[in-house]
C-alpha cells in the first residue's frame, strides 16, 4: 500500500484496503478533504496542487495523475 493511498484512506475515512485508482471520491470529497489532500500531495510528491484542480477530480487515480503532472 502506497503512502499516498494510505493518506487518501485517512482523508476519505475508509479502510486503506478499499483505496485504488478507481475509487470514487463521491460525497466525502468536501472542502476539508481537499485541504487535507493539498497537504498530502505536498508531503508525498513534494508538489503543489491547486484546489481547482482537485475539485475536478472524480477518483483517487485522477488525483494521482494531477499530482504527478503538477
Amino acid at each position: 500500500m502506497s503512502e499516498f493511498y494510505e493518506g487518501m484512506a485517512e482523508i476519505l475515512e475508509v479502510d486503506a484496503t478499499e483505496i485504488n485508482a478507481d475509487y470514487e471520491l463521491g460525497e466525502a470529497w468536501d472542502s476539508l478533504a481537499i485541504v487535507s489532500t493539498i497537504a498530502l500531495v505536498d508531503e508525498v510528491f513534494d508538489k503543489a496542487i491547486g484546489a481547482d484542480t482537485l475539485q475536478e477530480c472524480r477518483t483517487v487515480g485522477d488525483i494521482e495523475k494531477a499530482a504527478q503532472a503538477a
Partner: peptide, 12 residues
C-alpha cells in the same frame, strides 16, 4: 476563508 488556498500559501 478559502482553506485550500490558505493551506497552499502556507506550505509554499
Amino acid at each position: 476563508m478559502d482553506g485550500a488556498a490558505v493551506m497552499s500559501f502556507t506550505l509554499r
